[in-house]
Amino acid sequence: MSIQHFRVALIPFFAAFCLPVFAHPETLVKVKDAEDQLGARVGYIELDLNSGKILESFRPEERFPMMSTFKVLLCGAVLSRVDAGQEQLGRRIHYSQNDLVEYSPVTEKHLTDGMTVRELCSAAITMSDNTAANLLLTTIGGPKELTAFLHNMGDHVTRLDRWEPELNEAIPNDERDTTMPAAMATTLRKLLTGELLTLASRQQLIDWMEADKVAGPLLRSALPAGWFIADKSGAGERGSRGIIAALGPDGKPSRIVVIYTTGSQATMDERNRQIAEIGASLIKHW
């Protein structure tokens, strides 16, 4: 067993022997301040990774656009098919120029040779490549099948209805392509620590998230040296922004954090800054 596999296998073990965790309302004060600064709703939840206990939450059962955070769930569904012998990570998928959609920095470079399922998941999570996500959605049967996968996990809230990039439209009061912070946090925890996926697939999923290259201005910008984070960000229309993450000190994750916002007129930089400040408060009061 590799060191990384050992780390993920012992996530519940280490967490069980940690000192009790206590909620700190100071972080919620910052979440509410972010709402004021952005002029928009902000949803927040913080779960203990081992027990699933909610440590703090704000608007945990209000719907927010998922945006690209759905790509972690998508690759979880792909990995479940791999575990069941219905898919192979090494299978190569070929596609054409007509398949390319807006923001496809990886797939646009491989029109000639195609990409493997493993490479597509890596591109979808680490670079948020939209064509990679659409190609992977095709392998599982489309958005409705991802929703069905989530329902089978016990998540009857999260739903995907459309493809990239239309799913980022974020129309107010439109339930399409949305989740709730509580539902997303619980589902992410199941994917990373539950028995739904094999140990190898859980490790692969967290490795992809740990290698995320496009979430630097968010929670990662607030992390002290030595902290662990595996995350996936999302951005959408109407001032929408979000991030889902597993993080913790001492090089291992111990909490799940989900943050979503929508309806702001603020710039992307300002949305990023507010999420980073929430992260800084979380870490300060850990």
Rank of each mutant, 00 (worst) to 15 (best):
E277T: 13
A15L: 15
A15C: 15
T193P: 01
F58V: 09
A15Y: 15
D174H: 04
R41K: 15
R271Q: 10
H94E: 11
H151N: 15
P217S: 10
Y95T: 03
L120I: 06
W286H: 04
F70R: 02
H285E: 10
S80P: 01
V214I: 07
A124M: 07
R81S: 09
R255L: 05
D99W: 07
G43N: 00
A124I: 05
S264R: 05
A132T: 02
L191H: 04
A276E: 08
R118H: 15
F14E: 01
S68V: 00
G239R: 02
G226C: 09
T267S: 13
L89P: 07
P224I: 03
V214Q: 07
L150E: 02
C75F: 05
P172C: 11
E145Y: 10
V106A: 10
L55V: 10
M1Y: 01
M127F: 11
I125E: 01
I140C: 06
A215N: 05
D212C: 04
T112G: 15
K109V: 12
L55D: 04
Q4Y: 14
P25W: 10
V101G: 07
A132G: 05
R220P: 02
I243M: 06
L137G: 04
I93V: 13
Q203N: 13
P12R: 05
T267G: 14
R81Y: 08
G90Y: 12
L160E: 02
E277Q: 11
V21C: 15
T186Q: 13
D250K: 14
L197F: 06
F70C: 08
T112A: 13
Y103I: 04
P253K: 08
G194V: 07
I171S: 14
Q97D: 13
L160V: 14
G154K: 07
R63C: 07
G76S: 12
G234D: 00
Q203W: 07
K144A: 14
I244K: 00
S80V: 11
A34V: 11
T186Y: 13
L150Q: 05
A183Y: 09
P217N: 12
H110D: 05
H94W: 13
R238N: 15
Q86A: 13
R7A: 10
G76A: 13
Y44I: 08
G248H: 04
R162I: 02
T186R: 14
N50V: 12
A148V: 13
L10D: 03
G236W: 01
V214R: 06
G242C: 06
G234V: 00
E237M: 15
H156A: 14
G279L: 04
I243V: 11
F70H: 08
A246S: 09
D207S: 15
R41E: 07
T138L: 12
D174E: 08
T261R: 03
R273S: 10
A40N: 08
H285Y: 14
P224N: 06
E56L: 08
H24T: 15
I93D: 02
D231H: 04
G251R: 11
T112E: 15
L89Q: 05
